[in-house]
């Protein structure tokens, strides 16, 4: 798994894949999708797919892929090496969503929430497999949200494919377990080798589990906070844990859409717009100036 | 710290020590209130200060952040607009001929006397005053007729520049940052004159603006 492309610029998202085995391009395949790193406030979220010919599912099971959450990091690494070695019938692809990308997507003016982001990434990976010539026939997807709606969405997107969306699919379908392992291994490696472009000084390298309810992680967030710039790009700014710390400890920043935020508005009576002003009104500035937002300077 | 765009001449080295560029408050002729102006070195040139001001702006300047996100511009200004303020005041108070250094006196804005040092003041003041010379000394009095003639020239020059720079002057409201492919041929000569009058009115009092409109 060559992660150099992502490691060189971990601000942007990255797609990487194995070569599609010849068998996958000639035989109907089952494809599993899973994610890693949805919950943490630190690091990327990784979506992974793994596929093999339907007829070879038994061979995949023989590699003893299991629910990746029950395995140790070292065990997952070993399993991934076995999957990667089975190049004749197993293929994989990963989409690494950088924490910066997650943060900016979720905080855009036209909000792009995590669910939509997740679904689109999964759809993108299925399409990538199809574009690579893989004869995808069946798709198995793990989900935390409502399975029926997501299944319907995928079926609409890929009407020729048999789609199964189920919670805990990683423990039901070997191809999803395999995808889970690919995603988890990728995330573990990326997080371990994370290069802080911000050149942090005097910051503890131990940030705990990376989960928002971990006191060690919260302490680390507070420690590495810059009052003007906030957190390093390793942090998902859009997570409420991060936002609360920013609100309490960082400098306030106002954007021109802050006015649309109900918490920023103070209710103003309509009548106040018609109230007589106490101060005498002076001639308004010529439109040449106000159209260009130019004002006379009275003080520096 | 402030970020300011200024003509190069502002930063010319002064001929005399301690006479570098000077920011100072003077009476804005349109509002009658204090506004900030800039004299170049040796007070030869006068500049008005404008700020480009959007509400949600700040600066990074070097390794510092600054809340005030205004971008300032210093642009050359004809000092006669400010001299007019005192000529009109003198005319209202007693209507007598006076030397300029007695006209340009203001406790609230003591720097107004520096207008005398501007190169163009002595060269062009005859456009707005009646002059008398007694015993080798010159005396001045505001002339409305001459001033209106001078202001009309300003308006005419402004019209030319507006046309040359394709400034939108017609009645339709549109942000100045919107750039349409269409040439603004809808504007009439009247539109240009009205607009130019309005611009010049930013530099004169309301009475004079009304008189100029009539003229």
């Amino acid at each position: 798994m060559d992660l150099r492309a992502f490691e060189e610029d971990n601000a942007v998202s990255c797609l990487l894949d194995s070569a599609a085995p010849a068998a996958c391009r000639t035989q109907p395949c089952c494809l599993g999708i899973d994610e890693a790193g949805r919950g943490p406030v630190l690091g990327p979220m990784v979506y992974g797919i793994c596929y093999c010919p339907v007829a070879r599912q038994g061979d995949l099971e023989a590699i003893k892929v299991a629910d990746s959450k029950t395995l140790t990091e070292a065990q997952r690494e070993q399993l991934f090496e076995k999957l990667d070695a089975a190049k004749d019938f197993v293929g994989w692809a990963l989409h690494i969503l950088s924490p910066n990308f997650i943060s900016t997507s979720m905080q855009r003016r036209a909000k792009y929430n995590l669910n939509a982001l997740s679904h689109d990434t999964a759809i993108g990976l299925i399409q990538h497999a199809l574009d690579s010539g893989v004869q995808v026939a069946e798709v198995f997807v793990d989900t935390v949200g409502p399975a029926e709606k997501y299944q319907e969405k995928l079926k609409q997107q890929f009407p020729g494919l048999e789609v199964t969306v189920k919670p805990k699919a990683d423990s039901l379908f070997p191809v999803v377990s395999a995808a889970s392992i690919c995603a988890k291994v990728a995330r573990d490696r990326v997080v371990k080798n994370w290069k802080f472009v911000e050149a942090l000084e005097n910051v503890d390298s131990d940030y705990g589990s990376g989960y928002p309810n971990d006191p060690k992680t919260k302490e680390w967030l507070t420690q590495c906070l810059d009052p003007v710039f906030g957190f390093p790009q390793f942090v998902r700014f859009s997570w409420s844990t991060a936002q609360v710390i920013l609100e309490n400890k960082a400098v306030a920043v106002r954007w021109d859409d802050t006015e649309d935020d109900p918490s920023q508005k103070s209710a103003q009576s309509l009548l106040s717009y018609f109230a007589r002003k106490d101060t005498p009104t002076r001639r308004p500035a010529h439109r040449f100036f106000y159209e260009r937002k130019l004002e006379t300077v009275t003080s520096l | 710290q402030w970020v300011m765009v200024v003509p190069e001449s502002v930063t010319d080295l002064p001929k005399k020590p301690n006479s570098g560029p000077l920011f100072t408050r003077l009476c804005n002729p349109s509002t009658g209130q204090a506004a900030l102006y800039l004299f170049s070195s040796d007070s030869r040139q006068l500049f008005e200060l404008k700020a480009f001001h959007e509400e949600y702006r700040s600066w990074f300047i070097g390794q510092a952040v600054q809340q005030d996100g205004r971008l300032f511009f210093a642009t050359p200004m004809d000092p006669l607009f400010l001299v007019l303020v005192y000529l009109i005041k003198s005319e209202k108070e007693h209507g007598k001929f006076q030397p300029l250094d007695q006209i340009l006196v203001d406790e609230e804005f003591p720097s107004c006397s520096m207008l005398l040092q501007c190169t163009s003041t002595s060269r062009t003041i005859h456009h707005i005053v009646e002059e008398k010379e007694i015993g080798g000394k010159k005396f001045y009095k505001f002339s409305e007729e001459k001033t209106l003639k001078w202001l009309k020239k300003k308006v005419d020059q402004t019209v030319k520049v507006l046309k040359c720079h394709d400034v939108r002057v017609d009645a339709r409201v549109q942000t100045a940052t919107f750039i349409s492919g269409k040439q603004f041929t809808d504007a009439t000569e009247d539109d240009y004159i009205r607009y130019a009058h309005g611009l010049i009115s930013e530099y004169i009092n309301e009475d004079l603006s009304t008189a100029l409109a009539k003229y």
Partner: peptide, 22 residues
């Protein structure tokens, strides 16, 4: 020039968090 109002005057680690780009 930033497209937001930072309600603070003071030091900022600009070179740490910003790299010039064309």
């Amino acid at each position: 020039s930033l497209p937001c109002r930072v309600l603070h005057d003071g030091d900022a680690a600009v070179c740490k968090y910003f790299s010039p780009a064309i």
